[in-house]
């Protein structure tokens, strides 16, 4: 019975370990894909590219005399997205749950201390 229990725990531990390895690889792949997409998007919206597309659509640069200015009381120009996003990045850095880090003994100890709750 002990052997069966030990085998079961070991098997689950091995499966969890393999899952960690796979997730780690996935995280790195997603990070790379994210960086690639950001750079790709920046290339597609680069200054030269936007200017080329605007001219192709028939737009031309504005002259100072052609502008109308309107004063809007209380208007504050919005911050760029990169600065707005900075406040939310921390939610993506949560630590691993205890199931992935606790040993069997630590789990027993934890359960005993918490009264089996």
């Amino acid at each position: 019975m002990i052997a069966a229990l030990y085998l079961q725990v070991t098997a689950r531990s091995a499966a969890a370990g393999r899952e960690i390895q796979e997730i780690r690889v996935q995280i790195m792949a997603v990070q790379r894909a994210n960086a690639d997409l950001e750079t790709q998007l920046a290339g597609l919206t680069s200054s030269a590219e936007m200017q080329r597309r605007a001219l192709a659509l028939g737009y031309r640069p504005v002259k100072p005399g052609e502008l109308d200015y309107v004063a809007v009381t209380g208007f504050v120009a919005p911050e760029p997205a990169i600065l707005r996003a900075a406040k939310d990045i921390s939610q993506f850095s949560l630590p691993l749950p205890p199931e992935y880090t606790q040993s069997l003994i630590e789990w027993f100890d934890d359960r005993i201390k918490s009264g089996g709750k």
Binding site: A16, I20, S47, L96, T101
Partner: peptide
């Protein structure tokens, strides 16, 4: 060995910098 797999410490990315430059004015 998957049994020994452990959490790899998070490696924070390098610091991102925002410049005072205005890209369109620069262009």
């Amino acid at each position: 060995d998957p049994n020994k797999a452990s959490e790899i410490p998070r490696v924070p990315n390098g610091t991102t910098l925002v410049l005072t430059l205005n890209r369109d004015l620069q262009a």
